[in-house]
């Protein structure tokens, strides 16, 4: 660990504010951390003595656990605060929560909040590093990074790669982080879904809009299939899950009509039989579990870099406790 030559700055709020080089640094730094996961002793001392709070205002299983593994594998001391049963559910405001964390000299805060902008709100008010683990429908940068890392693993380069995001883009922070990151790295990005679930002026983010899944499938090299929340049907955005599956679901029949084999990604948790059929999710072109594995590595990289770790020293850090 050296100095404060922070490659990312103080916080990771989203991929929109990052430069292509900053995104590449995170991806490159994640590489040596991947291997740690496969070791018998999955621990490095790089964050020893650092305290991290995982502040989850919204329920989350996989993101929270992924962060917690990443933190523990880097030897940080961690505390989890969930919305239920904490002061958060007793009406404490975000600014008071922030002040309390500041008073306890926390080094880093990982925050998941239902309000877009909550992570930057917190970051502006405390000296600790803040990592956005999802703020409303805004961004989920570590998910975007792990998706991009997975694509890079598979295709080698992102330049010119065609990635289509399928589903509820309107409510999806995953979609936004993917769009910002992929566009910056030279990929071509498409979005496809019912018009009721595509946000206004989405084309202006530099993406191509597909009205028909079949067109998207013909065009793309990879599909990132978004979860369709049950509430969307209750709110009237789509008339039924059955029809959604028939018109926008990723099925093997649909993929068989594609001119080439497509890589299939999903940020999880999946609704099998709604946005994605089981034979696709479990099929040979699905990298859904590799995404989960990469998630831990990417989060380790982000934690390491925000703590001031130099990108080129990540390799050395890996070897430091070599068995």
């Amino acid at each position: 660990m050296t100095g404060s030559t922070a490659a990312l700055g103080k916080d990771l709020i989203g991929l929109e504010p990052l430069s292509p080089d900053q995104i590449r640094i995170v991806l490159d730094t994640a590489e040596p951390f991947k291997e740690i996961t496969e070791r018998r002793i999955k621990k490095l001392p790089v964050l020893r003595g650092k305290t991290i709070v995982n502040l989850f205002f919204e329920p989350s299983t996989r993101t929270r656990i992924s962060f917690e593994f990443a933190e523990k594998r880097l030897s940080a001391d961690t505390v989890n605060i969930g919305a239920a049963g904490s002061s958060v559910s007793k009406g404490e405001t975000l600014v008071d929560t922030a002040r309390n964390l500041e008073a306890m000299s926390i080094d880093m805060v990982v925050i998941r909040h239902w309000s877009a902008g909550a992570a930057s709100f917190l970051a502006a008010r405390i000296p600790s590093n803040v990592i956005n683990a999802g703020d409303g429908a805004h961004e989920h940068p570590t998910q975007g990074l792990l998706d991009i890392l997975t694509l890079r693993d598979h295709f080698g380069s992102l330049e010119g790669l065609r990635v289509c995001i399928v589903g509820d883009v309107l409510h999806s922070r995953v979609a936004r982080s993917n769009i910002y990151g992929l566009v910056k790295l030279g990929a071509k990005v498409g979005v496809c879904g019912p018009r009721t679930l595509l946000p206004a002026s989405i084309e202006q983010l530099g993406v191509r809009v597909f009205a028909q899944v079949d067109d998207a499938v013909r065009w793309a090299d990879a599909l990132n299939v978004l979860r369709l929340q049950l509430e969307r049907m209750e709110d009237g955005f789509v008339p039924s899950l059955r029809e959604y599956n028939r018109v926008f679901g990723i099925t093997s029949q649909r993929l068989e009509r594609a001119p080439k084999e497509l890589l299939i990604m999903h940020p999880g948790p999946m609704n099998r039989g709604v946005e994605i059929d089981s034979d696709v999710a479990d099929g040979p072109h699905s990298v859904i579990l590799q995404q989960v594995t990469n998630g831990v590595a990417v989060r380790m990289a982000v934690l390491y870099l925000l703590a001031g770790g130099a990108p080129h020293l990540a390799e050395a850090a890996r070897d430091w406790t070599g068995t």
Binding site: E16, A116, G117, D135, G136, A137, H138, E139, R173, R176, P199, A200, S201, I202, Q204, L205
Partner: peptide, 15 residues
Amino acid sequence: HEGVISTRLGLRGKP
């Protein structure tokens, strides 16, 4: 306002 900025920010828009 519902538009490209609300889309970028992930905030719900008033059309």
